[in-house]
Simulated scan of single mutants.
Amino acid sequence: MTTPIFQNYTVLESPKKVACHPMPYLYAVYFCHFDAIGTKTFKLQLAGDITGDKVDAIVVCHMDTSGWSSDHAVFRMFGMKHGDALCLVFFEGNLVWIDQPSTIAVSVA
């Protein structure tokens, strides 16, 4: 793979539903994101701005953070406003369900 670890990516296709991520417990516990609770999950194809290499990524977006504490650390970390949407890229080791057969290869540092 020729893709640098850090580069900007551009969305190349419409999103498809997906995703759950592991929680830090002594046994397997996953936290799942569902549209019903204000989140949307997507499989997106991204293209690197340096090399043009394409990668598939799993992204979970919290579409409305207005129900979160206005003092939540994420607002300070990312310079966001209370209520803004927040999207997170899922990395290797996360559990993902896809509604149709597909191959996903994601590499995130």
Rank of each mutant, 00 (worst) to 15 (best):
M1D: 01
M1C: 03
M1K: 04
T2M: 11
T3E: 06
I5C: 07
F6A: 05
F6H: 05
N8T: 14
N8H: 08
Y9A: 04
T10F: 00
V11C: 08
V11R: 04
V11H: 05
L12F: 03
E13I: 04
P15Q: 05
P15Y: 01
P15R: 10
K16L: 03
K17S: 11
K17H: 11
V18Y: 09
A19V: 08
C20W: 13
C20Y: 07
P22G: 00
V29P: 00
V29L: 01
F31C: 14
C32L: 02
F34P: 06
F34Y: 14
A36E: 13
I37M: 14
T39V: 05
T39E: 10
K40D: 08
K40C: 13
T41C: 11
F42Q: 10
L46V: 02
G48M: 02
G48H: 01
D49W: 05
D49H: 08
I50Q: 15
T51N: 01
D53V: 06
D53A: 15
K54W: 01
V55E: 15
V55H: 12
D56A: 07
A57W: 00
I58D: 12
I58R: 12
V59P: 09
V59L: 09
C61I: 13
D64L: 05
D64N: 15
T65C: 03
T65L: 02
T65S: 14
G67M: 01
W68T: 02
H72I: 05
H72P: 08
V74S: 09
V74N: 04
F75L: 06
M77R: 14
M77H: 10
F78A: 10
F78V: 05
G79I: 00
M80K: 10
K81S: 03
K81N: 15
K81M: 02
G83I: 12
D84T: 08
L86E: 04
L86C: 07
L86G: 04
E92W: 00
E92N: 10
L95H: 08
W97E: 10
W97I: 03
I98M: 04
I98F: 01
D99Y: 08
P101I: 04
S102D: 11
S102E: 12
S102K: 08
I104Y: 01
A105Y: 06
S107D: 10
S107C: 09
V108Y: 14
A109D: 13
A109S: 15
A109W: 12
